[in-house]
Computed example of a mutant assay.
Amino acid sequence: MSGRKTGKKKQPKKQAKEMDEEDKVFRQKQKEEQKKLEELKAKATRKRPLATGGTKKSGKK
Rank of each mutant, 00 (worst) to 15 (best):
G53C: 04
A42T: 05
K13Y: 06
E22C: 02
A51F: 10
A51I: 03
K24P: 00
K60E: 14
R48G: 09
Q15C: 02
E21H: 11
T6A: 04
G53F: 09
K9Q: 14
K60P: 11
T55H: 13
Q15R: 15
K31W: 08
E21F: 09
G54D: 04
K10G: 04
L37K: 15
K8C: 05
T45Q: 07
D23V: 05
G3F: 10
E32L: 10
K43T: 12
K57L: 14
K9E: 12
R46P: 00
K35P: 00
R48S: 09
A51R: 14
L50S: 10
K61P: 12
V25L: 14
T6F: 12
A16L: 10
G7M: 08
M1S: 13
Q11L: 04
A42N: 09
A16V: 04
T52I: 03
R46K: 15
E39A: 08
E38P: 01
V25G: 02
K9T: 14
D23G: 06
P12Y: 01
K60L: 13
K29H: 03
G54W: 07
G59D: 11
T6W: 06
D23I: 04
R27M: 11
R46V: 02
G3E: 13
E21Y: 08
P49G: 09
S2C: 00
E38A: 09
K43W: 08
M19V: 09
K61I: 11
D20A: 03
D23Y: 02
Q15W: 03
R4W: 07
K31L: 08
Q30S: 01
Q28V: 06
E32R: 12
E18W: 09
T52E: 05
F26C: 00
T55Q: 10
R46N: 08
R4K: 08
K57R: 14
E22T: 13
K13V: 04
R27Q: 11
K47N: 13
D20I: 06
E32M: 11
R27D: 05
K9A: 14
K13D: 07
D20H: 05
K47E: 15
K24S: 02
E38V: 04
R27E: 12
K56V: 15
K61A: 13
K31I: 06
G59I: 00
F26D: 06
M19A: 13
K43M: 11
K41I: 06
M1Q: 07
G3R: 10
R46G: 03
K5R: 13
L37D: 01
G59Y: 05
G59C: 03
K31D: 07
R48M: 14
E22V: 07
A51E: 10
